Computed example of a mutant assay.
Amino acid sequence: MHQKVAIVTGAGGALGRATALRLGADGFAIGALGRPSDELAETVSQLEAEGVAARMLEADLRDATAIEAAILGTEREFGPVEALVNNAAIYPSTPFLEIGLGEYDDVVTVNQRAYFYAAQVAARGMVVRRSGAIVNIGSITWNGGWSNLASYVSTKGAAVSLTRALARELGEFGIRVNAVSPGAFPTKAEEINGDAAEYSAHVIEHQALKRRGADAELAAVVSFLVGPDSSFVTGQTINVDGGWVMS
């Protein structure tokens, strides 16, 4: 029986898990893609506990062959992939003058090349069916810089640029491509910012909404962008940041 199928990369992380759970609740079978980890297994376990058909796709996003195998394997098991959420990212915190090319290449491979290639593999099937939705997760950091994150910030800007290029090129096939740029959600990523309470106060000071965001609030926007209510929306970037960046 045909069912809606979505793949979420980085599904073991907080935002990836929230997205996978929301899309599962929306009726998608979920391919949870990421490096083997207890967190990824927990995401699949939670999906299955909710009655969602789920598959753990163990793949290092540095490995293009593994990305392709994961997507095609999901299609064989569940059916055509109708939604892809490129969410996985790494974010080493290093002063620009100290970033080695090895570290830079690693960030670009995971945060940029993997987005490109996963979208390419998924889109081949979407083109044949003349429908599909791709969401690339960016970051508000690309709007205004951010110290010690030059590699990460540059790849998040690339995610937005890729979104626009693919929206333009794939639109004639009925494929919609959008981006979501999260603000500072309270995830493990915040460990790079030092004292948690101090950083939380810093975030709230800069936001228009004076509270921290919940993972489910980001997932709700992704749900909108892959669902029928956004059928005439493509090439857009939505900041989900409590009003930190307004542009």
Rank of each mutant, 00 (worst) to 15 (best):
52 V>W: 01
57 L>D: 00
30 I>S: 04
131 S>A: 13
88 A>N: 00
76 R>I: 02
103 E>Q: 14
240 V>P: 09
6 A>H: 07
245 V>M: 14
33 L>S: 00
160 V>E: 11
102 G>N: 09
126 M>D: 04
143 N>H: 12
16 G>D: 01
28 F>K: 03
14 A>C: 07
84 L>N: 11
223 S>V: 10
244 W>Y: 14
220 A>N: 14
2 H>T: 03
24 G>H: 05
119 A>E: 04
26 D>T: 06
100 G>P: 02
127 V>K: 11
154 S>V: 08
144 G>P: 00
80 P>K: 00
102 G>F: 06
44 V>T: 06
212 R>K: 15
182 P>W: 07
51 G>P: 02
48 E>D: 01
32 A>F: 12
68 E>R: 14
110 V>N: 06
133 A>L: 11
220 A>M: 05
17 R>Q: 15
8 V>T: 01
58 E>Y: 12
180 V>N: 05
72 L>F: 01
16 G>T: 05
18 A>C: 12
237 T>Q: 14
169 E>T: 07
19 T>A: 12
171 G>I: 03
111 N>T: 08
76 R>V: 02
38 D>F: 05
220 A>V: 03
56 M>H: 01
170 L>T: 03
21 L>T: 02
32 A>E: 05
192 I>H: 14
33 L>M: 15
138 G>V: 10
43 T>E: 07
208 A>Q: 07
189 A>R: 13
63 D>I: 04
46 Q>V: 05
164 R>L: 06
186 P>I: 04
168 R>C: 01
218 L>F: 15
241 D>V: 08
48 E>A: 08
83 A>F: 10
171 G>D: 04
163 T>C: 09
90 I>H: 13
136 N>A: 07
207 Q>C: 13
128 V>P: 03
190 E>F: 12
146 W>T: 13
181 S>K: 13
12 G>T: 05
128 V>M: 03
90 I>A: 08
37 S>D: 06
173 F>Y: 12
213 G>L: 05
81 V>H: 01
213 G>E: 10
116 F>G: 00
17 R>G: 08
157 G>E: 03
97 L>A: 13
231 S>D: 11
151 S>K: 06
143 N>W: 15
199 Y>T: 11
174 G>H: 06
7 I>A: 06
151 S>A: 15
141 T>Y: 12
217 E>C: 10
6 A>W: 08
160 V>T: 12
135 V>G: 10
59 A>L: 00
60 D>H: 07
153 V>Q: 03
18 A>V: 08
146 W>L: 15
91 Y>M: 09
51 G>A: 00
2 H>G: 01
47 L>Y: 10
157 G>S: 04
77 E>C: 01
187 T>E: 05
59 A>R: 00
28 F>R: 00
224 F>D: 00
80 P>R: 03
159 A>R: 07
74 T>C: 10
168 R>D: 10
74 T>K: 02
190 E>T: 11
236 Q>Y: 04
228 P>T: 12
206 H>T: 00
35 R>V: 07
104 Y>R: 07
197 A>K: 09
203 V>Y: 11
192 I>C: 10
218 L>C: 04
62 R>S: 11
102 G>I: 05
160 V>M: 06
3 Q>E: 06
89 A>S: 15
192 I>W: 09
132 G>K: 03
